[in-house]
């Protein structure tokens, strides 16, 4: 192959590879939206779009935190359990109003993230094990605190406003979703923090020798992931009207899938917040399209296809990334 390909062709191929690596999810998302819009009535109706976004806000927040963690070469398996714990905490403190109902669970999440980060950064333990242990611990705490049942939110307080308030016709969770990603993009694109995160993921030893405070950056990344999982728990409680100690099983894996589909390398050092956003929307949209397909009633596609499509899609994307990356070098 090396003898036949001209420099121009290899450049085109490299460019194609980088586009697919970074924007593959966006291309797939655009195609899926186009498909849905042409095929189904009401697919682009404001009701479908807003409820779709509001439902996926939780996953969006978790995947955002996961992006930064994975960019350092780490992983955070605890997010689903932390979200469940935070939702229980949110329901329990909801009687004190909206501000407390948001601040306390987010703080709980951040503290758990700090524990994760400390064990990873200073304890030098593997992120996979630390956050697996934290998954068990947070899930156990959530179930214990809640007594193995859902905890009702206080409907007299201002907390429920989170689920009902709309601003410019968009529900509050959508705004939180949007603001989080806007901040994520700004942080990643314009501050040294993101460069430090990527430098650590690329080569931790080099980053240390360059004088980066590796431990502090790692601590920050896990704390951010925990806090965002806490916020996802707040949304969970607001949307269900109750804290759900048994919810969030497998959310961490969905988030990892969204991050990887969005073009962030599992080994760290390369990643994109925008890519993760496309990844989250794409994975969510697969479910949405399956629902619409069923609604037409021509063929009955069970919603159970979702996890099959999702799993298959994940493999295909990573396979393509691998192939293209291999050709690039």
């Amino acid at each position: 192959m090396a003898t036949t390909s001209t420099p121009a062709r290899s450049i085109t191929r490299a460019r194609l590879a980088s586009v697919l690596q970074g924007q593959g999810a966006l291309v797939a998302l655009a195609l899926l939206v186009l498909f849905g819009a042409l095929r189904y009535d009401n697919f682009l109706s404001s009701y479908n779009v807003t409820s779709f976004l509001a439902n996926n806000a939780k996953f969006g927040l978790i995947a955002l935190g996961m992006t930064f963690v994975i960019m350092t070469g780490g992983i955070d398996l605890s997010v689903g359990a932390v979200a469940a714990l935070a939702s229980v905490v949110a329901a329990m403190v909801s009687e004190y109003g909206l501000v407390v109902g948001i601040a306390v669970p987010v703080l709980v999440g951040a503290v758990i993230g700090l524990v994760n980060g400390s064990l990873v950064a200073w304890g030098r333990l593997q992120p996979f094990i630390v956050t697996l242990a934290m998954l068990l611990a947070a899930r156990g705490l959530a179930l214990t605190v809640a007594g193995n049942q859902s905890v009702a939110v206080d409907f007299e307080s201002g907390f429920t406003a989170l689920g009902t308030t709309t601003l410019l016709t968009l529900a509050a969770p959508i705004w939180i979703f949007a603001v989080a990603y806007l901040l994520g993009v700004l942080v990643l694109g314009r501050t040294p923090f993101s460069r430090h995160v990527l430098a650590i993921g690329d080569n931790e030893e080099t980053a240390r020798l360059m004088g980066l405070r590796v431990e502090r950056v790692k601590l920050g990344v896990y704390a951010l992931s925990g806090a965002l999982a806490g916020m996802a728990g707040v949304l969970l409680a607001a949307q269900y009207g109750a804290g759900q100690p048994a919810e969030g099983v497998g959310w961490e894996l969905t988030a990892i899938a969204a991050v990887v589909v969005g073009g962030t390398l599992l080994t760290g050092g390369l990643g994109s917040v925008v890519g993760t956003l496309w990844g989250v929307l794409l994975l969510g949209l697969i479910f949405n399209v399956l629902n619409f397909e069923n609604g037409r009633g021509v063929i009955s596609l069970s919603p159970y296809w979702q996890s099959i499509v999702l799993g298959g899609f994940l493999l295909v994307v990573v396979l393509l990334q691998n192939r293209l990356a291999a050709r690039q070098t």
């Binding site: 094990i129 697996l132 242990a133 611990a137 899930r139 156990g140 705490l141």
Partner: peptide, 12 residues
């Protein structure tokens, strides 16, 4: 459910 908390701690 304290079992899970304990196992997490033992794991670490």
């Amino acid at each position: 459910f304290w079992q899970q908390v304990a196992v997490g701690a033992v794991l670490i």
